[in-house]
Design a protein around this nucleic acid. Structure first.
Lengths: 200, 200
DNA sequence: ACCTGAACACCGTTCAAGT
DNA sequence: ACCTGAACACCGTTCAAGT
């Protein structure tokens, strides 16, 4: 045999991470495998299916059996980290999840902890924030390429912005968890009055 | 003059509503106006810009000055209704919002009511749930076309599913609002223990 | 089982040129 | 100011045919 389904999914993830979702075409994935575009359709019925399989792979690390995290907070943070680890990962996972594939293992786990409504609310927020984070990061990276004078001294890209987005995510997470009656999260730094600016 | 920017945006919305985002190409919008594809680039610099303008138009009804709703709950519900009113509207608005255009007027308003973190959390949830709702609706519509035997008697599409999604949205909304310390929403029907099934 | 080669019906965008 | 015509470099998917 020449290529397996796993090879196709792996090639898809390589192309995604290297070139982004916009350029992750069937033709590019085929080229990555050194094969004709039509060959992919022996392994996968269409592009949507391939993307769903890629989404499962992206989210795998966060939903692996070994990482049996008990609290919903760490669960969402792990999920977000898994999506942010690959270029445009949040878009791929969120789209696949809307079609019911992908993160449903994560949802089952969360539903056991906070009920179905809580699980859905947490997941939709987590996906949305991750997409927003990734959009802003690639906009920042593009801006840095166009206008490299923006960097005051060393450093590849502005580290403060990334920290802000991570903190912003956790604050929103704590709002939802508070609404679910979860134990209040101990946040020793900072007062609680109207911090930070908007993400959009 | 032959066509204005407003004409182009209006044509875009007509194509979107009739054929969906997937088939809302520059070439189709041009054909809708009876014009060559290249003519669009006189009015708009690229497709992304056109979609952002369309997103503003979709969300307009919900953020109009006349509809100065005071509470965040009605604000989110109005936003969701505006997105659901046009085919694939949630996708278009959510994508544009991630690029900072679109719903930022709505975010300013919400931030005044519940602070920036609350506004962001509410918006990301609202966008995500609307996208999920629209995905499920068009899957249901497709299923109804393929398998019309699923309908027990009259009715175009299953009305129960739509009701469930609307109720599911409001339950999640109330979780977040509770977390924000908003006045508890009076929900007279049903007990509170683990209702409904999953959306994903 | 896995792949090639060729085709079909499309894309977004650019650019010189017309009126 | 607004548009045409032609081109460039792409798409996803199908299908007969090869090995």
């Amino acid at each position: 045999m020449r290529n397996s389904l796993a090879d196709v999914v792996a090639a898809g993830l390589r192309v995604l991470d290297a070139h982004g979702l916009e350029h992750c075409s069937m033709r590019r994935v085929a080229a990555e495998l050194g094969v004709q575009p039509s060959a992919l359709y022996h392994h996968v019925s269409d592009k949507q299916t391939l993307l769903a399989l890629m989404a499962d792979e992206i989210v795998g690390p966060a939903t692996a059996l070994g990482a049996a995290v008990a609290d919903p907070r760490s669960c969402c943070i792990a999920l977000r980290e898994a999506m942010l680890a690959v270029r445009d990962g949040a878009d791929v996972v969120a789209t696949a999840a809307a079609f019911r594939l992908g993160a449903s293992e994560a949802e089952r786990r969360l539903a056991g902890l906070v009920g179905p409504d809580g699980a859905r609310t947490l997941l939709l927020y987590t996906f949305g924030h991750a997409q927003s984070t990734q959009t802003h990061r690639q906009a920042a990276a593009l801006g840095a390429l166009i206008d490299p004078a923006a960097l005051p001294r060393g450093g590849t890209t502005d580290p403060a912005a990334a920290t802000d987005l991570d903190a912003s995510f956790e604050r929103g997470l704590d709002i939802i968890l508070r609404g679910l009656g979860a134990p209040a999260q101990l946040n020793p730094v900072l007062g609680a009055a109207e911090p930070q600016n908007s993400v959009f």
